[in-house]
Amino acid sequence: MSYSSKQIVALFKKDVLLETRQQHAFYGLLLYVAATVFIIYLATGEPESEIWNALFWIVQLFAAVNAVAKSFLQDSKGRMLYYYTISGAVNYVLAKLLFNAILMLMISLLTLLIFLLLLGNPLNHFLQFVLISFLGSTGLSFVFTFLAAIAAKAQQQAALMAIMGFPVIVPQLLLLGKISAITFNDVIQAGWWQMVAVLVCLDILIVALAIILFPFLWRD
């Protein structure tokens, strides 16, 4: 293992450790998702597949905002400087991206479970939908991780995250909704994998931008 990947793993482990020491944040998030889905259930019962799909991605969106928003706030300024001197900005942000992606994967799996439990199962291609929800949740976590880094520097967390994030995330959400809607059909269209490829490219683009731009955010 190379030196920088070791550092990324170490930083990642630190994030996991912090999360397991303060489990209330994670459980809070789970409760948030569960309560949201339960409200949807009370309001609509078992919705049609289109609405099921739309609601799923909206819940994912808000879960992502809440899960990721705090990720750059736990570390104090002095500790940030410490990480910066021992490992560098790129490794730091890669560890954050990795951690948030895995966090969002867990959340999305759980959301899916509660959705299936309460709102019924309109899915025809279960595995494909799981794949898309994984891709989607990592994509959402990438975008919001990057925006959280900007917002943390601007010191106006919640409002700025929403203002910057929602317009930026719309194309991705539309694409996700479109791709995942196809998994409700009996037959998967021929161009489906192509659209998945577009989604993957978008995710790669976001990670690349984060790697290039994050070092500039850190300079104080």
């Binding site: 990057f146 900007i150 601007a154 731009l213 500039f216 955010l217 300079r219």
Partner: peptide, 12 residues
Amino acid sequence: KSARLGAVYNIF
């Protein structure tokens, strides 16, 4: 700071 954050967000 506003210039730097602005530039980063602008590129993104």
